[in-house]
């Protein structure tokens, strides 16, 4: 069944007539020609398709495009400002936090969304209940675990994210490991 829809991707509107079955990921990759978000599993099991929806990290492979009219979608391609890279992207390059690069746009979007969640005081599964988390190795690793990397770049991803995290006053986030 076809339907009309306007998707706002990386600050640009795209008017489409699409099949209601089309996921946001396939709309991006197969209709709009934005292949920044990757398809690793198509079932929510790898994180390669992570985008930001109104600033929150989500999986575009399990999102039907028809539900996204009016949302602001950001892919890794649209993260940077004025043609430059986002600090998280630069940190990934500096720390060599990828090899094949296929999980990378998803990792980067996920990290940006995760840092915003952290800034909002969200806990994670490894946060000691009743406390506010420091963004140490274990916190970052747990919060980034929805993004699989088969190349095994985790040991570089964690320090990259740590380096890109805005410092909080009076803490030593960026300390451990």
């Amino acid at each position: 069944m076809e339907t009309e829809l306007t998707l706002r991707i990386d600050g640009q509107d795209h008017h489409l007539t699409i099949d209601t079955r089309t996921t946001l990921l396939d709309a991006l990759r197969e209709r709009i020609g934005n292949t920044s978000a990757k398809k690793g599993c198509d079932h929510g099991q790898c994180g390669a398709c992570t985008v930001l929806t109104d600033g929150r990290r989500t999986l575009s492979c399990l999102t039907l495009a028809v539900t996204q009219g009016g949302a602001e979608i950001t892919t890794a391609e649209g993260l940077g400002q004025d043609g430059g890279l986002h600090p998280v992207q630069q940190a990934f390059i500096d720390h060599d936090a990828f090899q094949c690069g296929y999980c990378t746009p998803g990792q980067v979007c996920s990290a940006v969304g995760m840092l915003a969640e952290y800034a909002d005081g969200w806990p994670s599964a490894v946060t000691e209940p009743g406390t506010t988390a420091e963004l140490d190795h274990d916190e970052i690793a747990e919060r980034m675990s929805g993004n699989l990397c088969r190349c095994g770049a985790y040991a570089n991803i964690v320090p990259a994210v740590q380096a890109a995290a805005p410092r909080r006053e009076g803490t030593n986030a960026g300390g451990a490991r």
Partner: peptide, 16 residues
């Protein structure tokens, strides 16, 4: 409850 939710799925999936 908070702990049970945080133990489930991933950050992205919990946002959805």
């Amino acid at each position: 409850l908070s702990q049970a939710l945080l133990a489930g799925a991933s950050g992205q999936l919990r946002n959805m």
